[in-house]
């Protein structure tokens, strides 16, 4: 079989081939074969229903309950939803809060903004690593070993790593000592830590690994002969990236971005430790209300956060439908 027809058959470049009769037959046959779907999905579905759907439904129910001194009390109250969205003075042109969204919406907004910036940075930093592992490293065992090397920091509890940030980036930390020692600065710089800069760096450092894995898997499946062939036909590296590598890695990029998106949107620990608690995130708000046993309002905040995540994921899936790509 020649290379060109192989290219067409798997639809690597451009549009999918016209479905011919044989392909349709194959598809029909295909649906009949393989393990029975019902057996494949039943165990996980039962697990999901018992341990995710049922508790989730109870969270939704809590969000309508009232918080009385005696504890949660069943009711159908929209009080906490009102609290979430409405600020006094919103419709009053005279008030200083005129048309200012509630603090919870603003917090969610700033959380999402931070998330987007970090996602972009993770993509820029992580993609070349995935590319390196998939395209430049030949043996699978080395690919896996070098990938695992990126995972190792993850296997140290984040609570321990969080404590280690200060002696690294603080005023008397290693970086400052190095800068002072080399005579680059004459007194310790403080923007490294408890700052937006430090916070963003920390988020990228912690979560970038999550984007590398999926992108790597997408890239690893690209037949290197195709790239070879394209190069032989005179394609520039940019063309090859735009026509072959880029589109092929999109599902991996989408999955990686979903991972990072949900992790950082729900994040609270890094904001506390690396940003010194100098900002609120959607996650810290939930924890604060959870901490004072206002469970209905914590639930409302959680549901709104989930709603934002669902919208974010749908947007990502709109751009790349990972299921259609199967």
């Amino acid at each position: 079989m020649s290379k060109v027809s192989e290219l067409h058959h798997t639809g690597l470049i451009g549009s999918q081939p016209e479905p011919d009769e044989a392909a349709v037959q194959a598809k029909i046959r295909h649906t009949e074969e393989g393990f029975a779907t019902v057996w494949l999905i039943t165990p996980a579905t039962i697990w999901l229903v018992l341990f995710l759907v049922v508790p989730l439904v109870s969270i939704v129910i809590f969000s309508f309950w009232e918080n009385t001194p005696q504890g949660l009390s069943p009711a159908f109250s929209l009080e906490f939803y009102g609290e979430y969205f409405y600020t006094k003075g919103f419709f009053d042109p005279e008030a200083d809060r005129f048309l200012l969204p509630s603090v919870f919406i603003r917090t969610l907004g700033s959380t999402l903004y931070f998330t987007l910036v970090t996602m972009l940075l993770c993509l820029i930093v992580g993609y070349p690593i995935a590319y390196f592992l998939a395209m430049q490293v030949q043996a699978f065992k080395w690919q896996l070993a070098l990938f695992l090397l990126c995972m190792v920091p993850f296997w140290t509890s984040y609570l321990i790593r969080a404590v280690a940030w200060l002696p690294m980036l603080g005023r008397r930390g290693l970086i400052n000592q190095a800068l002072l020692g080399m005579g680059i600065v004459d007194k310790p710089v403080s923007f490294l830590f408890y700052s937006e800069f430090g916070y963003t760096m920390a988020l990228v450092q912690i979560y970038v690994v999550l984007s590398i894995g999926p992108i790597f898997f997408s890239l690893a499946k690209i037949d290197k002969d195709i790239i070879e062939a394209a190069t032989d036909m005179g394609a520039t590296p940019f063309q090859i990236f735009r026509e072959i590598i880029g589109p092929m890695s999109l599902p991996g990029v989408a999955i990686g971005m979903i991972f990072i998106f949900v992790m950082i949107t729900g994040e609270f620990a890094t904001a506390v430790v690396v940003y010194g608690g100098k900002t609120s995130t959607a996650g810290t708000v939930i924890l604060n209300y959870y901490g004072i046993a206002n469970y209905p309002f914590a639930a409302v905040n959680a549901l709104m956060l989930m709603l934002a995540m669902v919208i974010g994921i749908i947007v990502i899936l709109r751009i790349v439908d990972i299921r259609k790509e199967l």
Partner: peptide, 25 residues
């Protein structure tokens, strides 16, 4: 005060407060 840059950090645990002081933050 916060907008003036008065606060270096906000701490939550015993250990954090010790580290803030020991590290000269």
């Amino acid at each position: 005060k916060k907008k003036e840059g008065h606060f270096r950090a906000f701490w939550e645990t015993f250990g954090q407060s010790v580290n803030l002081m020991v590290s000269g933050e």
